[in-house]
Amino acid sequence: MKLASYRVAFHTLVHKEIMRIMRIWVQTLVPPAITMTLYFVIFGNLIGSRIGQMGGHSYMEYIVPGLIMLSVITNAYANVVTSFFGAKFGKHIEELLISPVPNWVILWGYVLGGMARSLAIGVIVTIISLFFTRLQVQHWGITISVLILTSILFSLAGFVNAVFAQKFDDISIVPTFVLTPLTYLGGIFYSVQLLPEFWQKVSMLNPILHMVNAFRYGILGVSDIPIATAYSIICIFIVLFYCICLRLLQRGVGLRT
């Protein structure tokens, strides 16, 4: 296949993924908007007013970046894992497997789908947050790049999960037992400086903490940890997951008998 054909195949895949998101928008786009509004109202407004300042900002301001990241992470992951596993389950993944689309094009097609949904939700949540607080983005470059890299990373992670998943339960195990705890402990609602020193050190092992802080730095200009570390961690994980995904596709794990 020539490059022009790859482009057509890639467009087709991305288009298909976006159509899927739109077709089931009640499941894909609405829930995060509702959940995040509740977070803003309850944690930001009601409780936040009693908490006072966090990291030199009002509590509402402090949690907005974290909640945007939370939405992006969970939705990037959810989109790819459900779409790819759904294709396996419904057997229409065979349409792709028999076609001459190279594995990296398949992978990027699904990743773009995950990015499309998570970034759309990032925008929706940001708009909702504007009803509660005024955001002054300090570093646009950092804000946007961290957001994009994070959505790529968790799309890839969702893909790995989908490849190994054999039944519907398998696609919620990682989100429930790994992703959600790591995200909640990733400094969305609090600054790690509140923790005892030991737990601060332990928290540093949580990659999501670094991403949330880098993103918060982009918007508010405050971070618990150096930004460079955050970028390195995200990039290392992206490369790692990307290689794993390609290897799995090549070997046909969970796809070919």
Partner: peptide, 12 residues
């Protein structure tokens, strides 16, 4: 769309 997607995968 089923037909169009399949065509797309083959670069049509």
């Amino acid at each position: 769309p089923i037909i169009l997607n399949q065509a797309g995968y083959y670069g049509v």
